[in-house]
Design a protein around this nucleic acid. Structure first.
Lengths: 222, 222
DNA sequence: ATAAAACTTGATCGATCGGTCAAACTTTGG
DNA sequence: CCAAAGTTTGACCGATCGATCAAGTTTTAT
């Protein structure tokens, strides 16, 4: 990570990465994965640098060599998660078919909840506790992102493709209904009488959420 | 709290409470309110007993006099919150009108998100981190509660009052869509360009959520 | 070959936190 | 009035945690 003295050659001059760059990339990936898991499980305060180091398979001072402080490591994990955020909903465009675009968005979000539940939980934990680190992101990038998407949906409504709807509250509902299968997986599994959520559960969630939302917006299902 | 040596007369023999009982009740209320706020803000690990004591206006050893351990205090806060949980959805009964019952449930849940956001956040935090304290509650009481309500909704479907729907996933969606206005209030406020959510925001949320869900279930709105 | 840079690691430090203790003070019941 | 029970509080303890240091080893560039 950039906190280390010198990440060696990184200007793109060299065609192949030396053993040092490769080792560094491998370790940083291990660290980020371990940190995401520990932050998801225990929250920022409850996460111990020693446990992150242990799970990453390195001594604690070595972890501090790559990430000077716990807060910096936490921010790095969050940054990785925010990149996931803004990469979704590419299908929500003015000319797209609303039913297809929304179906795809819901499916993608549920799929993310299944494949990256830890990321979702770290994000949820951060926001629940007041977003001390990503407050600026929420007020700037995310605000802009939603404003752009809201214009698209408003356009759909004006074109008569959709029942009138407040696009922002629609997003809040979609985010909540999909991310709950990551953040509240333990609760949902308990109510479904399972130890762990299974593939069929996520499929059922995506199917029914899509049906209710599409029909609720006056769109034809399927 | 029951951890203290003797809560004086509590068998209901005395008609009026003495000054000691009154003071005890007042302090316990202060402690629970302070604890709920600190646990909501910092999570279990991040919450400091010293800060809870400070916000309750008592010295730390006095806090430990009323609640022996941090975990016990946390469980007490959670218990208070779980009581809120099971008290909702009384209107979801076999003979009720589905549209009216679901509208009322959504409105009540959004109202709870507005009036008791701290309770919702403590609960969310607990579940996100694996429900170490309330796992049994989820697998027993809540599981039973949902099973009962699911039977009611299945009955509605069989009576042709409703589009076919998986009642459990419907509850997951309703819980998520309503509690998000408590748990993720900071994010929602940022996207809406506000410092804090206002009464009109909650009203808009309840209105639109109700519309989409009811229409999505094949029910007439209003 | 060699020096500089990058990386590794055992030992340790200061701060914070949950919890305890013992000595006080206050209320209650006889 | 007085003893027992209940309550309050400043001082303190051991454990844990984030972070640092200093002495090493390995890689890189010339």
């Amino acid at each position: 990570m950039d906190s280390a003295p010198k990440p060696a050659g990184d200007g793109g001059e060299t065609a192949v990465a030396g053993p040092r760059e490769q080792a560094r990339a491998k370790i940083e990936a291990k660290i980020l994965a371990a940190a995401e898991a520990v932050f998801a499980e225990h929250g920022f305060s409850g996460a111990a640098m020693s446990e992150i180091a242990r799970r990453a398979g390195i001594p604690k001072p070595n972890l501090h060599y790559y990430c000077k402080t716990k807060e910096e490591l936490y921010r790095r994990v969050l940054q990785q998660i925010l990149d996931l955020w803004l990469g979704t909903a590419d299908e929500i465009t003015p000319d797209a078919d609303p039913a297809a675009a929304l179906s795809h968005y819901i499916a993608a979000k549920i799929d993310l909840a299944r494949r990256r539940p830890l990321a979702s939980r770290v994000f949820a934990n951060e926001v629940i506790h007041g977003a001390p680190q990503i407050g600026d992101f929420l007020a700037n990038e995310l605000n802009d992102w939603v404003a752009r998407k809201a214009k698209v949906i408003d356009g759909w409504v004006k074109a008569g493709k959709l029942q009138p709807v407040d696009p922002k509250h629609l997003f809040f509902m979609l985010w909540a209904a999909t991310q709950t299968y990551a953040d509240f997986a333990v609760q949902i599994a308990a109510v479904l009488g399972r130890k762990k959520l299974q593939a069929a559960d996520y499929d059922a969630a995506a199917k029914q959420t899509t049906e209710i939302v599409l029909r609720g917006l006056g769109l034809k299902v399927r």
